[in-house]
Computed example of a mutant assay.
Amino acid sequence: MPIFFLITLAILLGLILSNLSKWMGPSRPNAIKTFVYESGMDPVGSAHERFSVKFYLVAMLFILFDIEVVFMYPWAVQYSQLLEQYGMFPFIEMLVFITILFVGYIYVYKKGGLKWS
């Protein structure tokens, strides 16, 4: 019973807080406020345009760099303790991880994701 009470409370609080400004704040829509805004320029084209594959490759590059830093930095900080405790296993494990990341970089390179022209 307490878990259902907590879930209900969380849902209600989320709904109330997300709609609080709508309920309490002033609402004076006009043509200028409801106009589509794209960095101060008039919108050109449809909102349902297809993105180039390079956009997704750049996103993949970001994820690869992000994952690499998130996992390698703490590993490097604790490396000496890991080496004492587990021997060469942490080093081999990180080599496997770096190999998987390197395969991702090779894929992005072959697809032309590193060409910024």
Score class of each variant (00 low, 15 high):
79 Y>E: 05
96 V>A: 14
71 F>L: 14
78 Q>D: 10
92 I>T: 07
88 M>S: 14
69 V>C: 10
86 Y>C: 01
73 Y>R: 10
76 A>K: 15
72 M>W: 12
93 E>I: 09
99 T>M: 07
75 W>I: 01
67 I>S: 01
72 M>C: 07
67 I>V: 15
94 M>F: 09
83 L>P: 05
64 L>W: 01
98 I>F: 11
73 Y>T: 13
76 A>E: 06
69 V>G: 07
69 V>H: 10
65 F>H: 13
77 V>A: 09
92 I>H: 06
92 I>R: 11
89 F>E: 12
87 G>L: 01
68 E>Y: 11
89 F>L: 15
80 S>H: 13
64 L>M: 04
94 M>S: 00
92 I>G: 07
97 F>W: 02
93 E>L: 15
91 F>S: 10
67 I>A: 04
74 P>R: 04
91 F>E: 09
98 I>M: 11
82 L>S: 00
90 P>S: 03
85 Q>K: 06
71 F>V: 06
76 A>R: 07
66 D>T: 15
73 Y>P: 03
91 F>A: 10
70 V>C: 09
74 P>D: 03
98 I>P: 03
72 M>Q: 08
95 L>V: 06
72 M>L: 15
75 W>G: 00
73 Y>E: 11
65 F>G: 15
91 F>W: 08
74 P>N: 08
78 Q>L: 15
95 L>Q: 08
83 L>G: 02
89 F>N: 12
84 E>H: 11
84 E>Q: 14
99 T>I: 05
80 S>D: 12
86 Y>S: 01
64 L>T: 04
65 F>A: 05
86 Y>P: 00
88 M>D: 10
88 M>Q: 01
64 L>I: 11
76 A>T: 11
95 L>T: 04
68 E>L: 15
95 L>M: 10
65 F>T: 12
97 F>I: 02
72 M>Y: 02
96 V>M: 12
91 F>D: 10
72 M>T: 13
70 V>L: 09
81 Q>G: 15
92 I>D: 03
87 G>V: 02
84 E>C: 11
96 V>H: 06
89 F>V: 13
95 L>S: 11
78 Q>P: 04
66 D>H: 15
80 S>V: 13
74 P>V: 02
82 L>N: 01
86 Y>I: 05
83 L>M: 06
90 P>Y: 00
82 L>I: 02
70 V>R: 06
91 F>G: 08
95 L>A: 06
66 D>N: 15
97 F>G: 00
75 W>Q: 03
74 P>T: 05
89 F>W: 13
64 L>C: 09
77 V>K: 11
69 V>D: 08
72 M>G: 08
90 P>G: 01
99 T>E: 01
85 Q>M: 07
70 V>D: 05
64 L>Q: 02
80 S>Q: 15
76 A>N: 09
99 T>G: 10
84 E>N: 15
90 P>D: 02
67 I>H: 01
78 Q>I: 05
96 V>L: 12
75 W>D: 02
83 L>D: 03
97 F>L: 06
72 M>A: 12
90 P>C: 03
65 F>Q: 13
78 Q>N: 12
86 Y>L: 03
65 F>R: 10
91 F>H: 09
84 E>Y: 12
84 E>G: 11
90 P>N: 04
71 F>C: 06
79 Y>C: 01
